[in-house]
Nucleic acid binder design. Structure first.
Lengths: 222, 222
DNA sequence: TAGATTGTTAATCGATTAACAATC
DNA sequence: TAGATTGTTAATCGATTAACAATC
């Protein structure tokens, strides 16, 4: 009987993995406190997270680096590489196609689609850009695990429908719009401008807190 | 006395804003249920979020679109445009420099830096790429609100130190590593490969749930 | 054994949601 | 007035954290 892994824990596992990957080959064990400071959380939380995935630490010693790494990879579903198709070969799409960080971590972009005749037929990172019309037949030949959407917002839902229609269960959406998919599929949304907007909120808050503090300090008798 | 706005609420405000922006000029009011379905949350949550920022809805009618839009912009600290410097003019950095979604939403990239002599002096989106050595003197001339880091992971902490050292209060980090900044500054991290890894987890979980279901169904008497 | 660190409990905190009175 | 929708309460759920017994 497998216990359910909390969402928040899942979201932190990649950070732990990244830290483990950054360690030299000489390192045998890690402590929860190391993982904590490397990923910006509390050591108790790290231990709790690791207990959710069933990691076996040794009291007084820590966790075995290789064992923990393999366990996280397995739990994340990364024991085997995943195939990815990318739709949208514009600005962002091209950068994603060339991004080394995907391939390094076992995500292989197998094809790139666009509808712009000026782009179709060209190559990015060695992959020929195909017309979106070929999507369904290509996927019948070779299924894919994940579709990345890097189109304008106006096209995103239509592309998502075609991706899920062709059986792709996972979508990473970079278009700045919420998309709906069937219940059996999963979407994650990355909105670059949203990130800046959230940052802007905290800048404003800090600025005002700072101003308040300055006023408060001024009021103090010198 | 301003009430503190919860983190989760802040993270949703940009989605509400995006929906309001998508409405035609004819639309006078919106209901919490509209905002809810457009941003994938519950209508009660929308109303709670909006009450945190002090929105004045009208019972039986809804919220005034323009008033709400202006309020969210103000609360997010977007009443005035913000200036951004970008460090790293590689693959991803170049795409970010050209990304229309930033400028559209009031984030103006004013300069781009790199250390590669093959890139320095060239232009992206009309902005000349300058050598990183000029960062501090440039920022003394014209301060900036936000620094975007799009360098390799190995350089990210050093760049963050220089950005905060030059007084930049907000950092959006695309390098796949956690960076530390002084307490008065704010960082947000966007890790593209991490997003795929989290997606992979849910794909695996769904796949296994589906397999279990299939087995269970098989066991049923036909 | 002494020191270190895990694994887990229990308390706390924060976010979500249903439900409905208030009121346009 | 009747219908619609907000604003808020109260219950619930999930995540975080301190603290410490267990144990290598």
């Amino acid at each position: 009987m497998t216990r359910r892994i909390p969402r928040a824990t899942v979201a932190r596992l990649p950070a732990y993995l990244r830290y483990l990957d950054s360690l030299g080959p000489g390192r045998q064990t890690v402590q929860s406190s190391d993982l904590a400071s490397a990923s910006g959380v509390n050591a108790a939380k790290v231990r709790k997270d690791l207990s959710y995935i069933g990691a076996a630490g040794v009291r007084g010693v820590g966790y075995d680096v290789e064992e923990l790494r393999a366990l996280i990879l397995r739990k994340l579903g990364l024991s085997t590489d995943l195939t990815v198709v990318l739709v949208g070969a514009g600005n962002l799409g091209s950068a994603l196609a060339r991004y080394k960080g995907f391939d390094n971590r076992g995500f292989h972009i197998v094809s790139v689609y666009d509808i712009d005749p000026k782009r179709v037929g060209k190559r990015i990172a060695g992959i020929e850009i195909r017309h979106l019309d070929h999507l369904e037949e290509d996927l019948r030949q070779t299924a894919a695990d994940i579709g990345i959407i890097a189109t304008p917002a106006s096209e995103a839902q239509g592309v998502a429908d075609r991706l899920t229609g062709a059986g792709i269960p996972g979508i990473l959406n970079f278009a700045p719009t919420v998309i709906n998919v069937p219940a059996w599929a999963t979407v994650r949304q990355v909105d670059l401008a949203t990130e800046l907007q959230i940052l802007a909120f905290y800048l404003r808050t800090r600025r005002e807190a700072g101003a308040t503090q300055a006023r408060t300090q001024k009021r103090r008798p010198g």
